[in-house]
Amino acid sequence: MNNLSCYLYAIEICTPGLLNWQQAQPILANSLPYKLTSDPIPEAKILSVKEKRRASATVNLSLHIATQLQQTMQIEANLLKPIFASSDGDSDIFNYLSTELAQPEPAISPTLFHQSLHNSAAGYWSIATRSHTPSLSISAGDYTFSNGLLTAMSEVVLTQIPTLYVAYNLISCAPLDKINPMLTWFGMGLGFSTKKMPQTLAKITLKLVAAKSETSLVNTSLEPLRKGNPIACSLPLLEQIAKRGLTDIYLDYLPPYSLKINLEEYYQ
């Protein structure tokens, strides 16, 4: 494949102890010790009062990140193309449905049924922003983050539509937690465009290459977190950006490939 290049406009993270990019940046840039906290998932402010009342954890987490990115990008929300990536989708609702369906006479909540869909975040985002811009929702197990990044950068390069990339995963609750264990919930996001604007953060280039070992974290206190959620494999990339680093980053893609990511220039 050829190189995929575009501009990075915005970056966001939301996980216990690193609730936003401002808070995370010094910890990532200066390798300060990371401590896992018990922060709850923030509420997505963009939702209407009615939707807020019934929003699921995945909708809150993903739309909170999308809203933060959109504000940093300073582009109208309905002009942005959102790409949502999650390995498991809404595991709370998966657990609810599986438990209810094990009953002899199951009675399912219609709201929770439609929220169980992998694209519920995309649906709520388009409703909240009154957007007609198409969206995509994907999963690829442990390779969800790298596939989502490849998809988001492909979309922005081919369509020239500024793109929001939001990747997130909840933890599994009992009894699924024993067979699908995770340390904590994790969400992150990147905003891309093909145009360079005053708010542009950096130029980013991506290529699918033969497998190489993954770039490790300088801040080793983040290592349990990196291994503790399928989306947290994005941390070496976030650390690199926080440090304004220029060396190539390798993230695992499906074997026999790796994603090679390069940040060539920083404008801020």
């Binding site: 992998h118 995509l136 999963s139 690829a140 998809t151 026999p256």
Partner: peptide
């Protein structure tokens, strides 16, 4: 089996495909 990517992983492994792969889940 029940994970959103389960059938993708099964097909990729069963067919020994090595290209890009993912699940699109937009209902």
């Amino acid at each position: 089996t029940a994970h959103p990517y389960a059938t993708g992983e099964f097909l990729r492994n069963y067919l020994a495909l090595q290209g890009p792969a993912m699940t699109i889940a937009t209902a």
